[in-house]
């Protein structure tokens, strides 16, 4: 054979390596999907057949709130404040400043509160679940638990998952309250409104139908953070670098999923 490679041969080689690439990627993808399905099945099975680790649930709930409440307070106040300051000029133009509290309250309760709380918790709680469980995996603590006849799904994952699922709605309501308080501060930069009057104005427009879907949505946000954080940590690879990877991909994946769940939730509430 001559040394020159014919263009067609070259193209063929390129094409076949492209197809192997696609094949390998899609095989890897389906293995991932199978793993996730298996993981969800194991969680569901353990949720209903094993005794519940109540102590762990309380501990995780406490940590969940404790870790994120500071950050949520600061962010909540600022979001309320900023939203108010920015919405004011257009309302002044239409002579509708009186609507400012109600408008801000609705946008906080419906969207800002749940989404900001969830994103902060994805960063704070999701990453720490990924790192914590990842390092337990790497340093064989999960194996040690298993040989001590303790089911790690039951002891590690379910309490964390339920803790974050119940804490996110609570934290969301707290963020809503703080955000609305921030909005009152914002109003008081230009006007002088008593907190009582502000609250009456704010909640005049808020109806039950605004709060309920938001709370339901935040349960789902919590479940997404818990499921992703635990999955990434629990299935961390075998070397110390896997801990960082688990923490990082817990945040990235859960943030992305949160936005998608939010999109779906908005579509559903819109139909109601």
């Amino acid at each position: 054979m001559s040394k020159t490679t014919y263009p067609s041969e070259n193209a063929l080689a390129k094409q076949s390596s492209f197809f192997t690439f696609i094949k390998e990627k899609s095989v890897a993808f389906f293995i991932d999907v199978a793993n996730v399905v298996d993981y969800l099945k194991r969680i569901v099975r353990n949720l209903f057949t094993n005794s519940f680790e109540f102590q762990e649930f309380l501990k995780q709930s406490y940590q969940c709130g404790n870790k994120s409440v500071g950050l949520i307070s600061i962010t909540g106040i600022i979001v309320g404040l900023v939203l108010t300051i920015q919405s004011r000029p257009p309302l002044v133009e239409f002579g509708a400043v009186g609507m400012l509290p109600g408008m801000v309250a609705i946008s906080i309760i419906r969207e800002m509160g749940p989404v900001i709380t969830a994103l902060i918790c994805a960063g704070k709680i999701g990453s720490s679940m990924g790192a914590e469980l990842g390092s337990m995996r790497v340093t064989e603590q999960i194996d040690a638990m298993e040989v001590s006849n303790t089911n790690p799904i039951n002891f590690l994952i379910i309490p964390r998952l339920l803790a974050v699922t119940f804490m996110i709605p609570l934290l969301t309501l707290y963020a809503d309250a703080i955000g609305i308080f921030g909005s009152w501060l914002g109003v008081n930069i230009k006007d002088d409104v008593s907190l009582k009057l502000f609250m009456t104005q704010a909640f005049d427009n808020v109806e039950f139908i605004d709060i309920i879907p938001a709370v339901i949505k935040s349960f789902f946000f919590g479940a997404v953070i818990g499921l992703v954080g635990c999955y990434k940590g629990f299935n961390a690879g075998r070397g110390t670098e896997s801990v960082g990877i688990a923490a990082n991909s817990a945040v990235v994946t859960s943030s992305l999923l949160l936005i998608i769940v939010d999109l779906i939730a908005v579509q559903i509430t819109d139909l109601l």
Partner: peptide
Amino acid sequence: IGFLFQSAALYD
């Protein structure tokens, strides 16, 4: 069976 792990695997 008792198992002593390479990394000791104490629950930290």
